[in-house]
Computed example of a mutant assay.
Amino acid sequence: MEKSIAVDLHYFPNLEFFAVIAQANEIVLFPEATYQRQSFFNRTQIRLANKVATLSVPIQGRRPRISQNRIKIDNDQNWLNIHLRSIQSAYGKAPFYEYYFPYFEKVFQQNLESLWELNWEMLTICLKLLGLSVKMRVHDNSQDQTLTADIRGQLIPSAPFSERNYYDPESYFQLFGLDFDPNLSILDLLFCEGPASKGIVLKSVKKQ
């Protein structure tokens, strides 16, 4: 049976996101959806030496109720250098950083204006590096599309993953500290575990 899941587009999604979609045939994304503040659309979490840090992409204007595909990145701010330095500081010594980071760096170097486009390109790379054969599709109102599940609006920073029934953390090697930090950005897993990342994601799918 084909499994099609409606999801929100995130900036370097966390592991809960991938646990949700890991066994899907496709994910359906909605560029016309209204931008919501305090969401993962423009933020992700990485593990630094002494803390878990949030990286946020600044966006232009006061952000009235407009669609996500109309949100523009505020490239007048120095966010890109901050993100690049933070990622390098967090994962520069990780086993697979030198192999995987160039894929993301190429997208960063494009200085994209659209946050939707940036997130789409980065998610495409993440799925490829994970080896997940999940297709990405844009919702089309002109077609009759049947969804297996719809998790839009559920994965939000203000509600911990433990309140939902999707992700059961599977610990893996992390660079700093003795305590495992679950549900970080997919970057944390990819840079630390490389080809083993897919198996870890599959093990983290919560049994229903």
Rank of each mutant, 00 (worst) to 15 (best):
E113A: 14
I156V: 12
R137E: 11
F18C: 08
Y100L: 09
T146P: 05
F176R: 01
L190C: 06
Y11E: 00
D150A: 02
A149L: 15
S197N: 05
K72P: 00
Q36R: 05
V28Y: 06
L15M: 12
A33F: 08
Y167A: 03
L15Y: 10
I46T: 07
K72N: 04
N119Q: 01
S39V: 01
V52E: 11
Q88C: 03
Q109S: 14
P95T: 05
W120R: 06
R37Q: 03
V138A: 09
H10M: 04
Q174P: 12
E121F: 06
E117R: 02
Q68K: 10
S56W: 04
Q110T: 03
V7A: 08
Q68N: 13
D74C: 10
Q77L: 14
A90R: 09
P160R: 15
F30E: 10
F191G: 00
G61C: 09
G92E: 07
Q88R: 12
Q174E: 10
H10S: 04
F180H: 05
I186M: 03
A33C: 12
L115I: 15
Y97S: 01
K93A: 06
G199Y: 10
R65Q: 13
N42Y: 05
Q23D: 11
Q88F: 09
V205M: 11
D8M: 00
F191P: 01
K198P: 02
G92F: 09
I87C: 10
L155Q: 06
S67C: 03
L55D: 00
P102Q: 06
P58C: 11
Q88K: 11
D188M: 10
F18H: 07
A53F: 11
Q23H: 12
N50K: 08
L55A: 00
Q23S: 10
R152Q: 10
F12E: 01
K106W: 07
S114G: 13
L112D: 07
I59E: 09
L48T: 13
E117K: 03
L55Y: 00
V138K: 14
N14D: 04
D188R: 12
G194E: 02
T44N: 04
A149H: 14
A90Q: 09
K207P: 00
K207Y: 09
I46H: 04
S204T: 03
P182I: 07
S204N: 04
N42H: 13
L202F: 13
S133E: 15
L48K: 15
Q145K: 12
L175C: 00
L127A: 02
A33S: 15
K135V: 01
G92L: 10
L187G: 05
F30M: 02
V134K: 00
P95Y: 12
I71F: 08
A159N: 10
S133L: 14
T148M: 13
L178S: 14
Q88M: 09
V138C: 13
L112A: 07
S142C: 04
I125N: 08
K203F: 03
Q110Y: 00
L55I: 05
D8G: 02
F108S: 06
D8N: 01
S185W: 13
L129R: 02
R70F: 05
D150L: 02
F30L: 04
L190M: 07
G131E: 07
A49K: 15
F101R: 05
H83F: 10
R85D: 08
G177P: 06
L129G: 01
